[in-house]
Amino acid sequence: MLPYIARRLALVVPVLFVTSLVVFLFVRALPGGPAIALLGERATPEAIAAFERAQGLDRPLYAQYGSYLRNVLSGDLGVSTRSRQPVAEELLQRFPATVELTLAAILIAVLVGVPLGFVAAKRYQGPLDQASLVGSLIGISFPVFFLGLLLKYVFAIRLDWFPTTGRYDITSSLDTRTNFLVLDALLAGDGAALADVLLHLVLPAVALATIPLAIIARITRAATLDVLDEDYVRTARAKGLRGAIVDRRHVFANALLPVVTVVGLQTGLLLTGAVLTETVFSWNGVGSWIVEAISYRDYAVLQGGILFFVLVVVLVNLLVDISYAFLNPRIRFR
C-alpha cells in the first residue's frame, strides 16, 4: 500500500508541472492585461508600459515562467496585482469557506441521493423510479446560477426563511478563527451563531448539491440493479434471509463501491466547481475569488488558484483510490 501511495504522489509532480505551464500561458493568452483591467478608461499606453515594467511583465515569457516556477517551488505563489497581498495567504484564508460549502453540499447529495437511488432500484420501473429518473435529469440540466437566483427569490425574499448573501450575519461579532464557520460557532459555544451560520449555508449548499445528487442517485440505482441480479443475492434470499438483511448485507454493501468512487470524484469537482454558486451567493471562497481575478487579469491569483485546485483534485482522487482497499478486500495495491 505505502509504495503505491508514494508512486501516486510522485506522479503529482509532473501533473503540477504541466498544469503550471498551461495555466501560465493560458492567463497570458487572455486578451488585454492587468494594467487595462485595473486602470480601465484611464489606461494610457504609457501607463500600461510602466505598469508592466513594475510587475516584471515586460520580461520574456521564459524568464517570467522561470522565476514563477522557482517561487512556487519555495512555496511562494506571488503577489496579487490588485490587492498587492501574497496569493498563498489569501488562498488559505478562503479555502475553508469552499471546503465548508462543498462538504455541506456533498452531505446533502449523499443523504438524499443514495437512498433515492437505492429505493428507485428496488422499485425498478415503478412510479418512484420514473419520478427519480425525471428528477435527476432536471437536476443535471438546471443551470446552477439560475437555480441559485430562483432559490433565493422563493425562500429568501418571498418566504424570508433564509438569507441571500454571505456566510454569516455580518452585523454580529462571530470570531472567524478557523474560517470553518460551523466549527467557529461550535468553538465559541454560541448557539445563535451556529443557527445563523447553518441558515446561511442551506441555500448555497442545496444549489450546489443538485448535480451531484442527481448523479449519485443514478449511479446508486444502476449499481444496485446490477447487484440485485447477482447469484449470491438470489442465494441469500433462497436460504431464507429476511429482505432487509439481504438488502443491507449483500445488496447495499456491494453496490457501495461505485458510489464511493462517484462521491469522491464529485467532492473533488465541487471543491473546484463551486465557482458559480459562490458568485451568486457572495460566498467568500476560492471560486468567487478566481472569478474576480479573471476580470482583473490578476495573473498571480489565477495561476496560484488554479494550480491549487488541480492539486486538490489529484489528492482527492488519490484518497478515493485508497478508500477502495478499505471497501473491497479483493483490491490490492502494488
Binding site: 437566483l149 438569507p163 441571500t164 448573501t165 451568486v280
Partner: peptide
C-alpha cells in the same frame, strides 16, 4: 456602525436589498 459588504454579483445585490440584508 457602518458596514460595507462586498457583493460582486449585481442580481445578488438587488436580492440582498429586497431581503433587507443590506
Amino acid at each position: 456602525t457602518l458596514i460595507f459588504q462586498p457583493v460582486a454579483d449585481n442580481a445578488a445585490r438587488l436580492q440582498a436589498l429586497q431581503s433587507g440584508e443590506i
